[in-house]
């Protein structure tokens, strides 16, 4: 018993610094790229809806162009995107290594996804309500914000929750460009250096993080249903 305790203490002593550091790295990568992706993705989603033929900005070419680009990006697996984008990343942020270097591909990977989920959340909004607001003489931009986005909020939040979980998965590959993070630790120590306990520890942490995020997402979405 005492022996086991000692072993656990020794494990924590030896690895906690590394695991803590990589948890922070994961958080950094996820939060920064999430924020940028939302800033790009949400308006893009609105544009996807408005540019549909028959909608207020109805434009076949714009809508066709956006759809093709988003579909192309969304068909490339993240690991390939990461390498394909290397020159572009270097051009944008000056480096393709480290946390900074991985933000660009993470955003390119996530923003179109958020745009799509925004699009489908907005399309789900009851047409009748939108029509009622048009009939009251309310401006299109106000309808977008105060009716469409508002009514879609619960499903947008659930969608973003899923996007975050996807992002965490993608950051596992960030180690390949030296950005670190939990996934990288699990891979390097668990697989390359055969320290399975380290791998299991990181997996447990990942599971906990994802549980927390999903629960939080569900709760916020519930609250958004009536506010």
């Amino acid at each position: 018993m005492v022996k086991l305790m000692n072993e656990i203490l020794a494990f924590i002593d030896r690895w906690s610094g590394l695991i803590w550091e990589s948890t922070i790295e994961t958080f950094q990568m996820v939060s920064i790229s999430l924020i940028i992706s939302i800033i790009i993705g949400l308006p893009l989603g609105v544009l996807l809806v408005l540019s549909r033929p028959g909608k207020s900005l109805g434009n076949k070419y714009l809508s066709g162009f956006l759809n093709v680009i988003i579909n192309i990006i969304r068909s490339v697996p993240f690991i390939i995107l990461l390498f394909t984008l290397l020159p572009f990343t270097r051009f944008i942020v000056g480096t393709s290594m480290g946390v900074r270097g991985v933000i660009v591909p993470l955003v390119v990977f996530t923003a179109p996804y958020i745009a799509r989920l925004m699009e489908s959340a907005l399309l789900e909004v009851d047409k009748g309500v939108i029509e009622a607001y048009e009939a009251m003489g309310i401006r299109t931009r106000d309808i977008i914000w105060h009716v469409m986005v508002r009514e879609a909020k619960p499903s947008i939040i659930l969608g973003i929750t899923i996007a975050v979980i996807g992002l965490i998965g993608a950051t596992a590959m960030a180690g390949l460009v030296g950005a670190g993070g939990l996934g990288d630790v699990a891979y390097r120590f668990g697989h390359l250096r055969y320290e399975p306990v380290v791998m299991y520890a990181t997996i447990v942490i990942l599971i906990i993080i994802i549980q927390v995020i999903q629960t939080l997402g569900n709760q916020i979405a519930d609250r958004a249903k009536k506010d």
Binding site: G128, V129, A132, M136, G137, E151, D227
Partner: peptide, 16 residues
């Protein structure tokens, strides 16, 4: 349109 009210079969209220 602000001078023309309208009501519908489906009520069309904000659910949120």
């Amino acid at each position: 349109r602000q001078n023309i009210g309208m009501i519908f079969q489906g009520f069309n209220l904000l659910t949120t």
